[in-house]
Design a protein around this nucleic acid. Structure first.
Length: 283
DNA sequence: ACCAGCTCCTGCTTGC
DNA sequence: TGCAAGCAGGAGCTGG
Protein backbone atom coordinates (compact mmCIF):
# COMPACT_ATOMS: atom_id res chain seq x y z
CA UNK A 1 0.00 0.00 0.00
CA UNK A 2 1.81 2.92 1.32
CA UNK A 3 4.27 5.18 -0.36
CA UNK A 4 5.86 8.24 1.16
CA UNK A 5 2.66 10.33 1.43
CA UNK A 6 0.75 7.50 3.09
CA UNK A 7 3.54 6.73 5.55
CA UNK A 8 3.87 10.43 6.37
CA UNK A 9 0.10 10.58 6.93
CA UNK A 10 0.39 7.63 9.31
CA UNK A 11 3.28 9.31 11.14
CA UNK A 12 1.26 12.48 11.61
CA UNK A 13 -1.70 10.48 12.81
CA UNK A 14 0.31 8.51 15.35
CA UNK A 15 2.35 11.40 16.66
CA UNK A 16 -0.25 13.01 18.95
CA UNK A 17 -1.18 9.63 20.40
CA UNK A 18 2.35 8.31 20.87
CA UNK A 19 4.94 11.06 21.18
CA UNK A 20 5.98 11.43 24.80
CA UNK A 21 3.70 8.60 25.89
CA UNK A 22 4.66 5.46 27.76
CA UNK A 23 3.67 2.09 26.33
CA UNK A 24 1.91 0.27 29.14
CA UNK A 25 1.23 -2.72 26.92
CA UNK A 26 2.61 -4.13 23.69
CA UNK A 27 1.25 -7.36 22.33
CA UNK A 28 2.40 -9.39 19.36
CA UNK A 29 -0.58 -11.50 18.42
CA UNK A 30 1.47 -13.71 16.12
CA UNK A 31 5.20 -14.42 16.07
CA UNK A 32 5.95 -12.95 12.69
CA UNK A 33 4.99 -10.55 9.96
CA UNK A 34 7.30 -10.59 6.98
CA UNK A 35 10.14 -11.26 9.41
CA UNK A 36 9.92 -12.59 12.97
CA UNK A 37 8.81 -9.88 15.39
CA UNK A 38 11.52 -8.94 17.93
CA UNK A 39 12.07 -11.57 20.62
CA UNK A 40 10.37 -10.78 23.92
CA UNK A 41 8.38 -8.13 22.10
CA UNK A 42 6.08 -7.28 24.98
CA UNK A 43 8.78 -7.19 27.63
CA UNK A 44 11.11 -5.05 25.56
CA UNK A 45 8.48 -2.43 24.76
CA UNK A 46 6.42 -2.33 27.91
CA UNK A 47 7.29 0.68 30.08
CA UNK A 48 9.21 2.42 27.27
CA UNK A 49 8.51 6.04 26.50
CA UNK A 50 8.23 6.97 22.83
CA UNK A 51 10.44 10.01 22.49
CA UNK A 52 9.83 10.80 18.84
CA UNK A 53 8.22 9.47 15.67
CA UNK A 54 10.18 9.96 12.50
CA UNK A 55 9.88 8.84 8.91
CA UNK A 56 12.74 7.86 6.64
CA UNK A 57 11.76 6.70 3.16
CA UNK A 58 8.77 4.42 3.76
CA UNK A 59 9.98 3.49 7.23
CA UNK A 60 8.32 4.72 10.38
CA UNK A 61 10.82 5.12 13.21
CA UNK A 62 9.76 5.14 16.86
CA UNK A 63 12.60 6.34 19.05
CA UNK A 64 12.34 4.79 22.51
CA UNK A 65 13.82 5.98 25.80
CA UNK A 66 16.05 2.93 26.17
CA UNK A 67 18.20 3.85 23.18
CA UNK A 68 16.43 1.61 20.71
CA UNK A 69 14.30 2.50 17.72
CA UNK A 70 11.34 0.45 16.59
CA UNK A 71 11.50 0.36 12.80
CA UNK A 72 8.08 -0.23 11.21
CA UNK A 73 7.39 -0.87 7.55
CA UNK A 74 3.81 -1.16 6.34
CA UNK A 75 4.54 -3.35 3.34
CA UNK A 76 1.64 -3.37 0.90
CA UNK A 77 -1.32 -3.63 3.24
CA UNK A 78 -0.28 -2.39 6.68
CA UNK A 79 -2.24 0.22 8.60
CA UNK A 80 -2.53 1.59 12.12
CA UNK A 81 -5.65 2.68 13.90
CA UNK A 82 -5.85 4.79 17.03
CA UNK A 83 -8.76 4.35 19.41
CA UNK A 84 -9.76 5.21 22.95
CA UNK A 85 -12.70 4.92 25.30
CA UNK A 86 -12.09 7.95 27.45
CA UNK A 87 -14.72 10.50 28.42
CA UNK A 88 -14.64 13.24 25.84
CA UNK A 89 -12.48 10.98 23.76
CA UNK A 90 -10.36 12.41 21.02
CA UNK A 91 -10.08 9.26 18.90
CA UNK A 92 -12.57 6.78 17.51
CA UNK A 93 -14.06 4.42 20.05
CA UNK A 94 -12.42 1.04 20.51
CA UNK A 95 -13.73 -1.72 18.36
CA UNK A 96 -13.39 -5.42 18.85
CA UNK A 97 -10.07 -6.65 17.48
CA UNK A 98 -10.35 -7.67 13.85
CA UNK A 99 -8.83 -10.22 11.53
CA UNK A 100 -5.18 -9.38 10.81
CA UNK A 101 -4.76 -7.17 13.87
CA UNK A 102 -1.24 -8.42 14.52
CA UNK A 103 0.25 -5.95 17.00
CA UNK A 104 -1.49 -3.94 19.72
CA UNK A 105 -0.02 -1.11 21.80
CA UNK A 106 -1.62 0.73 24.66
CA UNK A 107 -0.39 4.02 26.09
CA UNK A 108 -0.48 5.50 29.57
CA UNK A 109 -3.33 7.72 28.39
CA UNK A 110 -5.55 4.77 27.61
CA UNK A 111 -5.12 4.99 23.87
CA UNK A 112 -4.96 1.76 21.91
CA UNK A 113 -2.93 1.60 18.72
CA UNK A 114 -3.45 -1.44 16.52
CA UNK A 115 -1.36 -2.58 13.58
CA UNK A 116 -3.35 -4.47 10.95
CA UNK A 117 -1.74 -6.11 7.93
CA UNK A 118 -3.61 -8.75 5.90
CA UNK A 119 -0.74 -9.58 3.58
CA UNK A 120 1.94 -9.39 6.27
CA UNK A 121 4.52 -7.84 3.97
CA UNK A 122 5.17 -5.29 6.70
CA UNK A 123 7.59 -5.76 9.59
CA UNK A 124 8.83 -4.33 12.88
CA UNK A 125 12.41 -4.45 14.08
CA UNK A 126 14.10 -3.16 17.22
CA UNK A 127 17.50 -1.65 16.53
CA UNK A 128 19.90 0.24 18.83
CA UNK A 129 19.95 3.89 17.80
CA UNK A 130 23.73 3.80 17.52
CA UNK A 131 23.36 1.18 14.77
CA UNK A 132 20.38 2.72 13.01
CA UNK A 133 22.27 4.61 10.32
CA UNK A 134 24.32 1.54 9.51
CA UNK A 135 21.45 -0.90 9.58
CA UNK A 136 21.34 -2.80 6.33
CA UNK A 137 17.77 -1.71 5.62
CA UNK A 138 18.56 1.99 6.01
CA UNK A 139 22.17 2.54 5.04
CA UNK A 140 21.62 2.30 1.29
CA UNK A 141 18.57 4.54 1.19
CA UNK A 142 18.57 7.45 -1.24
CA UNK A 143 17.61 11.09 -0.81
CA UNK A 144 14.36 12.33 0.66
CA UNK A 145 12.46 13.66 -2.34
CA UNK A 146 10.88 16.53 -0.41
CA UNK A 147 14.28 17.85 0.66
CA UNK A 148 16.65 20.26 -1.06
CA UNK A 149 18.69 17.54 -2.71
CA UNK A 150 15.90 16.69 -5.15
CA UNK A 151 16.74 18.61 -8.27
CA UNK A 152 17.64 18.13 -11.91
CA UNK A 153 21.40 17.78 -11.52
CA UNK A 154 20.92 15.14 -8.84
CA UNK A 155 18.73 13.03 -11.13
CA UNK A 156 21.11 13.41 -14.07
CA UNK A 157 24.04 12.14 -12.04
CA UNK A 158 22.04 9.44 -10.22
CA UNK A 159 20.75 8.00 -13.49
CA UNK A 160 23.92 8.42 -15.54
CA UNK A 161 25.04 5.08 -16.93
CA UNK A 162 21.99 3.21 -15.78
CA UNK A 163 20.72 0.76 -18.33
CA UNK A 164 17.32 0.36 -16.77
CA UNK A 165 14.08 2.20 -17.54
CA UNK A 166 13.20 5.53 -16.05
CA UNK A 167 10.28 3.92 -14.23
CA UNK A 168 12.42 1.21 -12.65
CA UNK A 169 15.05 3.78 -11.69
CA UNK A 170 12.43 5.90 -9.92
CA UNK A 171 11.33 2.91 -7.87
CA UNK A 172 14.90 2.23 -6.75
CA UNK A 173 14.85 3.21 -3.07
CA UNK A 174 18.60 3.63 -3.17
CA UNK A 175 18.19 6.68 -5.38
CA UNK A 176 14.98 8.34 -4.21
CA UNK A 177 13.53 7.30 -0.88
CA UNK A 178 9.81 6.72 -0.66
CA UNK A 179 8.61 6.89 -4.23
CA UNK A 180 6.38 3.94 -5.14
CA UNK A 181 4.39 2.73 -8.10
CA UNK A 182 1.57 5.26 -8.05
CA UNK A 183 3.61 8.39 -7.53
CA UNK A 184 6.29 7.27 -9.98
CA UNK A 185 3.58 6.98 -12.66
CA UNK A 186 2.06 10.31 -11.70
CA UNK A 187 5.41 12.13 -11.67
CA UNK A 188 6.35 10.77 -15.11
CA UNK A 189 3.01 11.90 -16.48
CA UNK A 190 3.42 15.40 -15.08
CA UNK A 191 6.91 15.63 -16.53
CA UNK A 192 5.78 14.32 -19.93
CA UNK A 193 8.32 11.48 -19.82
CA UNK A 194 7.80 7.88 -20.88
CA UNK A 195 8.32 5.23 -18.21
CA UNK A 196 10.07 3.21 -20.94
CA UNK A 197 12.74 5.80 -21.63
CA UNK A 198 16.21 4.68 -20.64
CA UNK A 199 17.15 6.35 -17.36
CA UNK A 200 20.53 7.48 -18.66
CA UNK A 201 18.96 9.57 -21.43
CA UNK A 202 17.61 12.12 -19.00
CA UNK A 203 19.08 15.46 -20.02
CA UNK A 204 19.17 18.44 -17.70
CA UNK A 205 15.94 20.02 -18.94
CA UNK A 206 13.97 16.80 -18.62
CA UNK A 207 15.60 16.05 -15.28
CA UNK A 208 14.59 19.44 -13.98
CA UNK A 209 10.99 18.87 -15.00
CA UNK A 210 11.00 15.41 -13.43
CA UNK A 211 12.49 16.58 -10.15
CA UNK A 212 9.84 19.29 -9.89
CA UNK A 213 7.07 16.84 -10.78
CA UNK A 214 8.18 14.37 -8.10
CA UNK A 215 8.30 17.01 -5.40
CA UNK A 216 4.97 18.53 -6.48
CA UNK A 217 3.02 15.30 -6.60
CA UNK A 218 4.35 14.09 -3.25
CA UNK A 219 3.71 17.42 -1.56
CA UNK A 220 0.14 17.56 -2.88
CA UNK A 221 -0.48 13.98 -1.81
CA UNK A 222 0.79 14.60 1.72
CA UNK A 223 -1.53 17.59 1.97
CA UNK A 224 -4.43 15.39 0.86
CA UNK A 225 -3.70 12.79 3.54
CA UNK A 226 -2.33 10.30 1.00
CA UNK A 227 -4.30 8.06 -1.32
CA UNK A 228 -6.87 5.53 -0.11
CA UNK A 229 -7.34 2.50 -2.31
CA UNK A 230 -9.02 -0.61 -0.96
CA UNK A 231 -7.66 -0.96 2.53
CA UNK A 232 -5.59 2.10 3.21
CA UNK A 233 -7.03 4.24 5.94
CA UNK A 234 -5.55 6.94 8.08
CA UNK A 235 -4.97 6.23 11.74
CA UNK A 236 -8.31 7.87 12.55
CA UNK A 237 -10.15 5.63 10.10
CA UNK A 238 -10.80 8.46 7.66
CA UNK A 239 -9.67 8.21 4.06
CA UNK A 240 -7.03 10.20 2.27
CA UNK A 241 -8.34 11.75 -0.90
CA UNK A 242 -5.42 12.11 -3.28
CA UNK A 243 -6.74 9.13 -5.32
CA UNK A 244 -9.22 11.60 -6.81
CA UNK A 245 -6.27 13.54 -8.20
CA UNK A 246 -4.64 10.67 -10.09
CA UNK A 247 -4.06 11.69 -13.69
CA UNK A 248 -2.83 8.38 -15.13
CA UNK A 249 -2.66 5.74 -12.42
CA UNK A 250 -5.30 3.03 -12.99
CA UNK A 251 -6.78 4.92 -15.97
CA UNK A 252 -5.92 2.45 -18.76
CA UNK A 253 -8.13 2.95 -21.82
CA UNK A 254 -9.33 6.35 -20.68
CA UNK A 255 -8.52 9.64 -22.38
CA UNK A 256 -5.30 11.43 -21.50
CA UNK A 257 -6.05 14.35 -19.20
CA UNK A 258 -3.39 16.61 -20.64
CA UNK A 259 -4.98 19.60 -22.30
CA UNK A 260 -5.18 19.13 -26.06
CA UNK A 261 -3.40 15.75 -26.07
CA UNK A 262 -6.22 13.45 -27.16
CA UNK A 263 -4.21 10.31 -26.44
CA UNK A 264 -5.35 7.21 -24.54
CA UNK A 265 -3.76 5.99 -21.32
CA UNK A 266 -2.07 2.60 -21.60
CA UNK A 267 -1.06 0.01 -19.06
CA UNK A 268 2.17 -1.88 -19.56
CA UNK A 269 4.13 -4.12 -17.23
CA UNK A 270 7.69 -3.22 -16.27
CA UNK A 271 9.68 -5.31 -13.82
CA UNK A 272 6.47 -7.06 -12.90
CA UNK A 273 4.61 -3.87 -12.01
CA UNK A 274 1.95 -1.91 -13.83
CA UNK A 275 2.95 1.34 -15.45
CA UNK A 276 0.25 3.71 -16.67
CA UNK A 277 1.16 6.38 -19.21
CA UNK A 278 0.03 8.24 -22.28
CA UNK A 279 2.14 7.23 -25.29
CA UNK A 280 1.10 10.39 -27.11
CA UNK A 281 2.48 12.97 -24.70
CA UNK A 282 4.97 11.04 -22.58
CA UNK A 283 8.21 10.65 -24.50
C1' DA B 1 28.20 -3.99 -9.96
C1' DC B 2 23.68 -3.98 -12.00
C1' DC B 3 19.40 -5.90 -13.38
C1' DA B 4 15.11 -8.65 -13.84
C1' DG B 5 12.39 -12.18 -12.01
C1' DC B 6 10.60 -14.65 -8.06
C1' DT B 7 8.77 -14.65 -3.69
C1' DC B 8 6.25 -13.77 0.57
C1' DC B 9 0.53 -13.33 1.77
C1' DT B 10 -4.58 -12.32 1.65
C1' DG B 11 -8.45 -10.45 -0.59
C1' DC B 12 -10.84 -8.22 -4.19
C1' DT B 13 -12.22 -8.00 -9.14
C1' DT B 14 -12.80 -10.01 -13.59
C1' DG B 15 -14.05 -13.30 -17.00
C1' DC B 16 -15.78 -17.66 -18.36
C1' DT C 1 -23.75 -18.54 -9.01
C1' DG C 2 -19.18 -20.66 -8.82
C1' DC C 3 -14.61 -20.95 -9.64
C1' DA C 4 -9.98 -19.80 -11.20
C1' DA C 5 -7.00 -16.43 -12.77
C1' DG C 6 -5.20 -12.03 -12.35
C1' DC C 7 -4.18 -8.13 -9.83
C1' DA C 8 -2.78 -5.07 -5.75
C1' DG C 9 0.48 0.85 -2.86
C1' DG C 10 6.89 -3.30 -1.38
C1' DA C 11 11.27 -4.94 -1.47
C1' DG C 12 14.69 -8.73 -0.08
C1' DC C 13 16.79 -12.44 -2.25
C1' DT C 14 18.69 -15.15 -6.07
C1' DG C 15 20.90 -16.02 -10.13
C1' DG C 16 22.36 -14.35 -14.70
Amino acid sequence: MPELPEVETVRRGLEPALAGRVLVRAEARRPDLRFPLPENFSARLQGRRVEALRRRAKYLLLDLDDGHTLICHLGMSGSFRVEDDLPGRFHHARTRLQAHDHVVFETDRGVRITYNDPRRFGFMLLVPQTELEEHKLLRGIGIEPLGNEMNGPFLVSAFAGRATSLKAALLDQGVIAGLGNIYACEALFRAGLSPRRSARTLGSARAGRLAAAIADVLREAVEAGGSSLRDHARTDGELGYFQHSFRVYDRAGQPCLREGCGGTVRRIVQNGRSSFFCPACQR
